[in-house]
């Protein structure tokens, strides 16, 4: 009997998972497959880029600076033992471009913007603002979901680029200004190692994929949250947990495809 119960529970979980993915797919389809409205859509998009992108900028830039500095400091103490401290540039730049830039930005984005999106949507749902749009013959998917999704998709790659740029600068500060690596050598070795297609384009691809996934999860969790305080707080937690796990798993997959 216990056995059957466990199997039933497993089945229920699987069904729920499939249903959730179906709902999320339908939501995104409804939001994105629309004739674009330039005049009415643009102000909504700008406002959401402000909420999602501009307001995440400070945390991303500050984190990028510190992570670049820490990376350089740790790298330096190891490299100096082999007399190869001039390779600090590629170490910092490549770690940031290939992994830390897109991944850490996505994690910060999930915590800062993703959870806010979920909470906002949950609140709009519980105060019947979404129903109210429906009754005013305005599609909430187009009015509410679509601009937020596009804003996430545009903002996160830009944030990743800022993260990496500031991180490399942080590495430069520690390596050159503090530890005294030769300025010219730092840049020339770095430039020889970093490549446009392999490193920068892949960084952008990763970051667009993460943006898609994190924004999608955040919007889905909010849009389908149980409309009460408990439901919203649970949805917000789920957004952060599921986005982070999805980003880390996808990062492994993408890294294997790109560099494996």
């Amino acid at each position: 009997m216990h056995m059957i119960d466990s199997i039933t529970a497993l089945g229920a979980r699987a069904i729920n998972l499939v249903r959730g993915m179906g709902q999320a797919g339908i939501m995104l389809w409804g939001a994105l497959v629309q004739v674009p409205r330039v005049k009415k859509g643009t102000p909504l998009l700008i406002k959401q880029i402000y909420v999602v992108g501009v307001q995440s900028m400070i945390i991303v830039v500050v984190s990028g600076l510190f992570i670049g500095m820490v990376l350089a400091l740790q790298g330096y103490t190891i490299l100096v033992d082999f007399g190869t401290e001039q390779s600090l540039g590629p170490l910092v730049a490549l770690s940031l471009l290939r992994e830390l830039g897109p991944v850490v930005t996505a994690l910060l984005f999930a915590g800062r913007a993703g959870s806010a999106l979920t909470a906002e949507l949950g609140l709009m749902k519980s105060t019947e603002q979404l129903s109210s749009l429906e009754m005013m013959a305005v599609d909430p998917l187009r009015q509410v979901i679509a601009p937020r999704f596009w804003a996430g998709l545009i903002s996160m790659p830009l944030l990743s680029l800022m993260f990496v740029a500031v991180g490399v600068y942080g590495g430069y500060l520690v390596g050159v200004s503090w530890k005294g690596i030769d300025d010219g050598a730092f840049w020339s070795i770095l430039q020889a190692a970093v490549e446009w297609r392999q490193d920068i384009v892949n960084c952008l691809i990763k970051s667009v994929v993460f943006a898609w996934v994190v924004t999608w999860i955040s919007l889905y969790r909010g849009y389908h949250s149980t409309p009460n305080p408990e439901g919203i707080s649970r949805a917000t937690t789920q957004t952060v947990v599921q986005s982070s796990l999805a980003v880390l798993a996808l990062d492994f997959l993408l890294t294997a495809l790109m560099f494996g």
Binding site: I49, V54, A165
Partner: peptide, 20 residues
């Protein structure tokens, strides 16, 4: 938002020309 997009573009250019 304009400044944000500009900062993103700047970061991109810095990476392309200074780093790569």
């Amino acid at each position: 938002v304009g400044l944000f997009l500009l900062a993103g573009l700047l970061a991109f250019l810095a990476l392309v020309y200074k780093v790569a």
